[in-house]
Design a protein around this nucleic acid. Structure first.
Lengths: 216, 216
DNA sequence: GTCTATAGGTGGATAGAC
DNA sequence: GTCTATCCACCTATAGAC
């Protein structure tokens, strides 16, 4: 860790990386202390216990991601721009910090998102809700096909990118890049594809008689 | 565990559930023994060590999933039927055995799919490859839009369903069902939606001049 | 604020009786 | 095949010097 950062930040940085790489249970206080360049007992000076440290790591990371999503969405001047912006923000974060998708996946399966339920509720009432409304408006005005559920469509859009990065080793094998996963350039190209795929699904008109809109 | 199953199977069943719920590191040999109704030392009679037991759990589960995927794909008589069949097989497994998506997610992040690399390679050379070829044929014949990369489109199709189940607690909050995740009926409806979404994305013709096909 | 030392508890794995 | 008993290693968290 650089010497010009304070111990608290060094601990948070080291913990973020180690929790993502090894998981909460498999990461020890001593490992975090060593990686942060401080004595392991010092962690208990800054954080109540191991779980509280983990909680703070998540809040710091996902709080900034959400804020960026809000910003991009608010600045968008069209449906397509909004969708592309949201997909790009997610994709960029996960390409530039490859440990992030693993940290997210671990929180989902290890703790059922319990440490980020506040942020998720905020997302549900904020960007996600507005994205759904945006899709429904497009359907009502006839610009988007109306046989897809807006909420499900929003989930599908997000799902593509997050899954690609969580499953990166498996996707690497499928696409012929080996177990280290696809190189960065492919990951970036996939992000663009994901937006294309979602927009294609939404904007297409049904070929024949439109089906009734599904209720979730 | 029922008394009519042998100890080896009881151990595998208990281990599958516990590894999925708590993770590899957080699951103890003693917990598995207790859940299986046998003494924990007996695990070392049937399995070399904890990791080998974990490996065998994965092979048993994903081997059968892959075989079912092969079967459904081979029996399909149209592009749409093949895509719907693959999505349905995945969705059904994850709805009926909710611990499975978590086990898969854990293997991806904890071990980078190392214990299933053989199965993934088999998938890459089998169903996945044929799915990609099928999409490309549809693009060449003009039935599918040709501005999407076939491999990326295949990943997007799969990604929707798997992510929904891995992220079930988060999706539950987003869709207003709480942290326990969406009820079974919603999960089943989403599976149908995912196939609709993929087919809509693939079958739509570009509204204006088609873009050049992207290279991954 | 940062360290040393350690208490108190649990885990994977083995030896060996039956 | 299944069990009891146990070894040794390691972890979280605290006490207390500096």
């Amino acid at each position: 860790m650089p010497p010009d950062v304070d111990s608290r930040t060094a601990i948070l940085d080291a913990a973020e990386r180690l929790f993502a790489e090894r998981g909460y249970a498999a990461t020890t206080i001593k490992q975090i202390g060593t990686a942060a360049g401080v004595n392991s007992a010092l962690l208990y000076y800054y954080f109540a216990d191991k779980e509280r440290l983990y909680h703070d790591v998540l809040q710091r990371l996902l709080g900034t991601l959400m804020a960026e999503g809000e910003r991009v969405f608010a600045a968008a001047r069209s449906r397509e721009e909004a969708i592309r912006g949201l997909v790009r923000v997610q994709g960029e974060l996960m390409v530039s910090k490859p440990h992030v998708p693993r940290l997210i996946a671990r929180e989902l399966v290890d703790h059922k998102a319990a440490h980020v339920s506040g942020l998720m509720a905020q997302l549900a009432a904020g960007v996600f809700k507005r994205l759904c409304e945006m899709i429904r408006e497009g359907q009502d005005s006839g610009e988007l096909r109306d046989d897809l559920d807006p909420q499900f469509a929003a989930v599908s859009t997000i799902a593509q990118v997050v899954y690609f990065h969580i499953a990166r080793p498996a996707v690497g094998i499928l696409l012929g890049h080996g177990t280290d996963g696809p190189p960065e350039a492919v990951a970036r190209a996939y992000t663009v594809h994901a937006a294309d795929f979602a927009i294609a699904a939404l904007s297409a008109q049904p070929a024949r008689a439109p089906r009734k809109r599904r209720k979730p």
